[in-house]
Design a protein around this nucleic acid. Structure first.
Lengths: 118, 118
DNA sequence: CTGTATCCTCCAGGATACTG
DNA sequence: CAGTATCCTGGAGGATACAG
């Protein structure tokens, strides 16, 4: 039976997955890799995700040191997120995943059609 | 609100994740990349997973064309799984994930300790 | 040995309402 | 604008029993 280990800390793949596995994390990293973004901008960029969830994912990415949060104590308060060096080291992997998935896309579409379990 | 799209078929990353995202899939691919394996061998290799779950993941990997199943109609029946060319094309990515995670491991351990939410 | 059918638990992620 | 607190639900994946 599976033991609820805090995380398979001995498995590199699992560690990486823990960091990028969140539903919106790769999108966020991809976006921040282009430049700094404010929370409200991100919320607008991902209208399919509720703001709460985006904030959640931002918090985790920040905790893992993939992104950085800068708070400008203005009125109203302004917040900006940017990618860190560690976060940047993730981009090559994300691009590989994207490329592979894109190449596989035609086959995936056929598979989904043929085994249609809609 | 998030629409239950059968899969973000337009996002390469999500397609790749769909294929390798299962809890035991990378382990299985990793193992089959070394050589052919019978189900019972895999069950023994991953004692923390119930056989049912392994079979599940095998089925999905097969459906996606990452592995191949060969049935020898003997008594008792013998079955062997092997990795396909498409499956093999996944290995570089898995190795990158593993490498990145392994490099990040020390930091991850520190993060887990400091923010201990056990 | 290989595989399916049942049942159940847990939690990521979604909706909503609210505070500063 | 930024952020938190509540509540809720679907589905991945776990245990177990059983069939070919």
């Amino acid at each position: 039976m599976y033991k609820k280990i805090p995380l398979d800390i001995n498995c590199g793949v699992k560690i990486a997955m823990e960091v990028i596995g969140g539903k919106w994390k790769t999108y966020i990293l991809y976006e921040l890799d282009w430049g700094t973004r404010r929370p409200s901008e991100l919320h607008r960029l991902f209208p399919d995700a509720s703001p709460r969830v985006i904030n959640q994912q931002l918090k985790e990415l920040e905790r893992h040191g993939m992104i950085e949060k800068t708070i400008y104590p203005e009125l109203p308060p302004r917040v900006e997120y940017s990618i860190t060096e560690d976060g940047g080291s993730l981009m090559p992997i994300i691009h590989m995943l994207e490329q592979w998935g894109y190449n596989f896309r035609p086959k995936m579409i056929r598979i989904l059609e043929e085994t249609e379990e809609e």
